[in-house]
Lab assay of single mutants.
Amino acid sequence: MTFKLIINGKTLKGETTTEAVDAATAEKVFKQYANDNGLDGEWTYDDATKTFTITE
């Protein structure tokens, strides 16, 4: 399955995708991506669209 991450950061904005077997796996990938890029914010997830959002 394809999951999307929408980034609404103070300095970084955009989106990225990952292929994962489930939402929990995708969340780990996206949280590592956010950590690697210095993002810290509030996370939301929409199961209907398989989309995570981080807002700083």
Results as ranks from 00 to 15, higher is better:
M1H: 09
T16M: 14
I54T: 02
E27A: 12
Q32C: 04
T25A: 12
T17G: 04
L12W: 09
T25I: 09
I54Y: 04
T11V: 14
F52A: 01
E56N: 03
E56Q: 04
A34S: 06
A24C: 05
K13H: 10
F30R: 00
T18N: 04
T53Q: 07
I6P: 00
M1W: 10
L12C: 04
K31Q: 13
T49K: 06
G14W: 13
V21K: 10
A20D: 03
T18M: 11
E56W: 08
A20W: 02
K50V: 04
W43T: 02
Q32Y: 06
D40S: 08
F30M: 03
L5M: 08
T18V: 15
F30H: 01
E27Q: 12
K4C: 04
K31I: 15
K28M: 15
Y33N: 02
N35F: 11
V21W: 13
T2N: 14
Y33F: 13
T44F: 14
K31W: 09
K31P: 00
Y33D: 02
T25F: 11
E15D: 08
T55S: 08
F30P: 00
T16V: 15
V21L: 10
D22G: 04
K13W: 09
N37T: 08
I6S: 05
I6F: 11
I7S: 04
E27R: 11
T11K: 14
T2I: 14
Y45T: 01
N35R: 14
I54E: 00
A23E: 10
L5G: 01
T44H: 08
E15Q: 05
I7K: 02
T2H: 12
T49D: 05
N8V: 15
A20F: 04
T53S: 07
E42R: 13
F30K: 00
A23G: 06
E19H: 12
K31S: 06
D46C: 05
M1L: 09
E19G: 07
A48H: 15
I6G: 02
V29H: 07
G38Y: 11
M1V: 08
D46M: 08
E27V: 11
E42H: 10
E56I: 06
I6E: 05
D22N: 10
N8G: 04
A48M: 08
E27T: 06
E42Y: 13
G14S: 10
D22Y: 04
I54S: 01
W43H: 01
D46R: 04
I6H: 07
K13M: 13
T11E: 10
G14A: 15
T16Y: 13
G41A: 03
E15N: 02
G41F: 06
I6V: 11
T25E: 13
A48D: 09
N35M: 14
D46A: 06
E42A: 14
E19Q: 11
E42Q: 15
W43A: 01
T49E: 09
M1T: 14
E42N: 10
T55C: 04
T2P: 09
F30A: 01
L5W: 02
G14E: 08
E27N: 07
D47W: 14
T49Q: 11
A26Q: 00
Y45I: 02
D40E: 12
A34K: 02
Y45D: 00
E19W: 11
T2W: 12
D22S: 07
E19R: 13
E15C: 04
E15T: 06
D46N: 12
K50A: 15
G38E: 13
D46Q: 09
W43L: 13
G41E: 01
V29N: 07
D47Y: 14
N35L: 09
V29D: 07
T51A: 08
T18L: 09
D36R: 07
D47Q: 11
K50L: 15
T17E: 11
D22F: 04
Q32A: 09
G9V: 15
T17N: 13
T53F: 05
E15L: 02
D36M: 08
V21P: 13
N37V: 09
D40K: 12
L39P: 02
T55W: 09
T11W: 10
A24Y: 12
K28H: 15
E15F: 09
D36E: 12
W43M: 13
G14C: 04
E27I: 10
F3M: 01
L39V: 10
D40H: 10
N37M: 08
I6A: 05
K31A: 07
L12H: 08
I7G: 02
K13N: 10
M1Q: 11
I7Q: 03
E15S: 06
W43S: 01
T17K: 14
T16N: 07
L39E: 02
Y33W: 14
L39C: 04
E56C: 04
E15H: 05
K13F: 14
T44A: 13
A23P: 12
D47P: 13
I7V: 09
F3L: 01
E56A: 05
E56Y: 08
N35E: 09
N35Y: 11
A24V: 13
D36F: 13
L12N: 06
L39D: 02
E19L: 07
T51R: 04
A48K: 15
N35C: 05
G41D: 02
T49I: 15
N37H: 08
E15G: 03
E27H: 11
T53E: 06
W43G: 01
L5R: 00
L5P: 00
I54V: 12
I6K: 14
G41I: 02
E42W: 07
G38T: 09
F30Y: 03
T18G: 03
K50C: 04
D22R: 03
N37Q: 13
Y45M: 02
N35Q: 10
A26Y: 00
E56G: 04
E56T: 03
Y45W: 05
T11R: 04
D46P: 00
K28S: 13
K31V: 09
D46L: 05
D40C: 04
T17H: 11
Y33H: 05
T25S: 09
T44I: 11
F30D: 00
A24H: 14
V29L: 11
T55H: 08
A48R: 13
K4W: 06
L39K: 02
N37I: 10
D22L: 05
D46G: 02
A48P: 06
K28A: 14
V29P: 01
T11F: 15
I6Y: 07
K4V: 13
T25L: 12
G14P: 11
T44L: 09
T16Q: 08
I54P: 01
K50Y: 12
A48V: 14
A20L: 03
F30I: 02
A23M: 07
T25W: 12
T51K: 04
F3Y: 11
L5K: 00
W43R: 01
M1F: 07
K31E: 09
K28E: 14
T44Q: 13
K4F: 05
G38S: 15
I6R: 09
F30S: 00
G38F: 10
K31T: 08
T18K: 03
N8H: 13
W43D: 00
D22H: 05
F3S: 00
I54H: 02
T11C: 05
E42L: 10
T49F: 12
F3R: 00
E56S: 04
Q32V: 13
A20E: 06
G14H: 10
D47G: 10
T11L: 14
E42M: 11
G14N: 15
T25D: 12
K10H: 08
T55I: 06
E42I: 09
L5H: 00
T11D: 15
Y33M: 06
F3V: 01
L5D: 01
V21A: 08
T18D: 02
D40A: 09
V29S: 11
N35P: 01
F3H: 03
T55V: 06
N35G: 05
A48W: 11
G41C: 03
D46T: 07
F30C: 01
F30W: 03
D36L: 14
D40M: 06
T44S: 11
A24K: 07
V29Q: 09
T18R: 08
K31C: 03
G14D: 13
E15A: 04
K10Y: 14
M1C: 05
T17R: 11
T25Y: 09
G9I: 07
M1K: 13
